[in-house]
Nucleic acid binder design. Sequence first.
DNA 1: ATGACCTAACTTTTAGGA
Length: 264
Amino acid sequence: MRITTWNVNSVKQRLPHLLAFLDEARPDALCLQELKCQDAAFPRAEVEAAGYAVETLGQKAYNGVALLVRAPLTMSEIRRGLPGDAADEQARYIEALVSGPDTAPVRVASIYLPNGNPVDSPKYPYKLAFLERLQRHARALMADEKAIVLAGDYNVIPELADAADPEAWRSDALFRPDSRMAFRALLAEGYTDGLRACDPRDGLYTFWDYQAGCWPRNVGIRIDHLLLSPQAADRLISASVQKHLRGLDKPSDHVPVTVELSAG
DNA sequence: ATGACCTAACTTTTAGGA
């Protein structure tokens, strides 16, 4: 089973690239972030015509996450919103149990973690609180001892090697010690960084800023991650970054990241 | 050395991104 995460930076702007990606890469499950539209505006008919079932948690203008699964896979036990703060109205978390005839089920989450900048604003504590809620929920899910893939835009640069210019991020919410500690705490719960487990090389990036010629200069960061429970990590065959999509016309500033799991 | 983007919104500027 191929599971991909992709921050599309507006699903409406990115629809041609999204449909082309579904056709070419044929992921079994696709986690989308930054839809930037409400549920009613999601291009559901086009995605369904491509052979995918869709579950969304949209929001006007900002945030928004979705899960797509390719037939004959189906989704059940849909969870919208991350537990732990009933007052949180930002659309940043959707989860489903993905099942099919030829594969053991996998619980998949699409996560859009808060950016957290500027760090002297309420946005940073909101980010850290979201990470704590995610850790608590990740721990609770682990009790089932089943395959889980927590995928998304974490807005965390885990290590120095995950940035072309780490000094530029030293005091940024994406690289501050508290953010990185919270990411490590997720790993300490028993989750595996799927891409890192398959590819130890420096220079693996998933985001290049639109500004300052970051893409042509390959000044990127790795912030989109797939975290695997032990039962999912046991099935991990390969992981890869679909970097070429950043070179298309009108690209997202993020590219897809994919893990391939055995049928189990 | 320097500047350099993109998206959505009751749009002619701002907020948010990272």
